[in-house]
Simulated assay, not measured.
Amino acid sequence: MLILEENDAEYDRLVEAVGIAGREVTVIRALDASQLLLDARDGPPDLIIADRSIPPFDTHKGIQTMRERGVDTPIVVVANSLDGAAALQWIHAGAADYLIKDRLARLGPAVERALVAQALRLEKAEVEAQLSYVTNYDELTGLLKRSLLQDRLVRMFPVLKPDEHLAVHFLDIDAFKDVNDTMGHAAGNDVLKQVVRRLERAVGREESISRLSGGKFAVLQRRASMGEIVALAEHLVESFRPPLEVNDRTIFITASSGVSVYPEDGREVEALFRAADIAMYAAKDRGRNRFAFFRP
């Protein structure tokens, strides 16, 4: 907990009021507003009690500066006298409460309410972050889900130059069901994780990889020439060929890949995905372990 109070006697009263409330806290003192962010450099305090009369810590320079810098610490403001307009300004600016110093019996409950509210906000934010991750990322591999890959593809359409292309590579592990059936799903999951590491090495940081389902993946290749698209298609298929070590056994897998190109094969996401899927099955029909471009 951080207390912003320059008067020694008033500071002692605030510390005592918090203590009387029965909450054990470690108190840090700040003498002026410029110390607030400095004292929070190792992590913001759980709560700030601030004397509103210390310049320049006012509604505009205090809370606003902290919020702009991403510090969401609850702030309880204390004042020497009641000022209804100022209290409203503080609350609207983001203060958790506004108290009068001669009524510090309210400080303990105010601190408790502010901390509980903050804990609920943090819990809600954590749940929302977890839900966002589950919605957008594959739990097993950590790769993008289809919906997030589609979103990234849509965002690329308007920024392409006339001589640039986008490519969608669909890759499916050949006979992946046999791995699960003969070695078990745990072994199949191990294979998928090893495949992901190979794909990440193959495509580099600029491209996006998605797990679509089972042993099926998609790679979004951005701003590429046709020669670069062919080179990546070859490299992706080749990345599956080295042996894998699974359950103390050496196994070999291959993959078939289908490639669609924007804008030649479609100007919408679903058209490009459908074209890549058709091309992938064409590669399987031709004997697997290869890539094919979409042909209408």
Rank of each mutant, 00 (worst) to 15 (best):
residue 1 M to Q: 04
residue 1 M to I: 12
residue 5 E to F: 01
residue 6 E to V: 02
residue 9 A to P: 01
residue 10 E to Q: 07
residue 13 R to E: 15
residue 15 V to F: 02
residue 16 E to H: 08
residue 19 G to H: 04
residue 20 I to C: 10
residue 21 A to L: 02
residue 22 G to D: 09
residue 28 I to L: 15
residue 29 R to W: 09
residue 31 L to N: 14
residue 31 L to S: 14
residue 32 D to P: 02
residue 33 A to M: 07
residue 35 Q to S: 14
residue 37 L to N: 07
residue 38 L to A: 14
residue 51 D to Y: 05
residue 60 H to Q: 14
residue 62 G to S: 08
residue 64 Q to D: 12
residue 65 T to M: 08
residue 66 M to C: 14
residue 66 M to Y: 02
residue 67 R to Q: 10
residue 72 D to Q: 11
residue 72 D to P: 00
residue 76 V to R: 06
residue 82 L to Q: 14
residue 83 D to F: 09
residue 84 G to Y: 09
residue 86 A to F: 03
residue 86 A to E: 14
residue 89 Q to A: 12
residue 92 H to F: 08
residue 95 A to W: 02
residue 98 Y to C: 01
residue 99 L to S: 00
residue 99 L to W: 00
residue 101 K to M: 12
residue 101 K to I: 11
residue 105 A to H: 09
residue 108 G to S: 03
residue 109 P to A: 08
residue 111 V to S: 03
residue 112 E to L: 01
residue 114 A to I: 00
residue 119 A to T: 01
residue 120 L to R: 08
residue 121 R to E: 12
residue 121 R to I: 01
residue 122 L to G: 12
residue 123 E to I: 00
residue 128 E to P: 01
residue 129 A to F: 02
residue 133 Y to C: 03
residue 133 Y to D: 10
residue 133 Y to H: 15
residue 134 V to R: 13
residue 134 V to K: 11
residue 135 T to H: 10
residue 137 Y to G: 03
residue 138 D to Q: 09
residue 138 D to C: 05
residue 139 E to C: 10
residue 140 L to E: 04
residue 145 K to S: 09
residue 145 K to E: 03
residue 147 S to V: 13
residue 151 D to E: 15
residue 151 D to A: 14
residue 151 D to G: 13
residue 154 V to Y: 11
residue 156 M to G: 06
residue 157 F to M: 15
residue 159 V to N: 09
residue 159 V to W: 06
residue 164 E to D: 15
residue 164 E to L: 07
residue 164 E to P: 12
residue 166 L to P: 06
residue 167 A to E: 02
residue 167 A to W: 07
residue 167 A to M: 04
residue 170 F to A: 12
residue 170 F to E: 09
residue 171 L to P: 05
residue 174 D to H: 09
residue 179 V to Y: 10
residue 181 D to E: 11
residue 181 D to P: 05
residue 182 T to Q: 14
residue 188 G to T: 03
residue 189 N to I: 03
residue 191 V to N: 05
residue 193 K to E: 12
residue 194 Q to R: 14
residue 197 R to W: 07
residue 198 R to T: 06
residue 198 R to I: 12
residue 199 L to N: 03
residue 199 L to I: 10
residue 200 E to A: 09
residue 200 E to G: 02
residue 200 E to H: 05
residue 203 V to I: 11
residue 203 V to N: 04
residue 205 R to I: 11
residue 205 R to P: 05
residue 206 E to R: 15
residue 207 E to S: 08
residue 208 S to Q: 06
residue 212 L to Q: 13
residue 214 G to C: 03
residue 217 F to P: 11
residue 220 L to M: 04
residue 220 L to V: 06
residue 223 R to K: 12
residue 223 R to E: 12
residue 232 L to V: 07
residue 232 L to F: 05
residue 238 E to I: 04
residue 242 P to N: 05
residue 248 D to Y: 06
residue 249 R to H: 10
residue 251 I to D: 12
residue 251 I to Y: 08
residue 253 I to L: 15
residue 255 A to K: 10
residue 257 S to M: 15
residue 261 V to Y: 12
residue 264 E to G: 13
residue 268 E to K: 15
residue 270 E to G: 07
residue 274 R to E: 15
residue 274 R to F: 13
residue 274 R to D: 14
residue 275 A to V: 09
residue 276 A to M: 01
residue 279 A to N: 07
residue 281 Y to K: 11
residue 281 Y to A: 09
residue 283 A to M: 03
residue 287 G to N: 12
residue 288 R to E: 15
residue 291 F to R: 04
residue 291 F to D: 05
residue 293 F to S: 04
residue 294 F to S: 00
residue 294 F to N: 00
residue 295 R to Q: 10
residue 295 R to P: 00
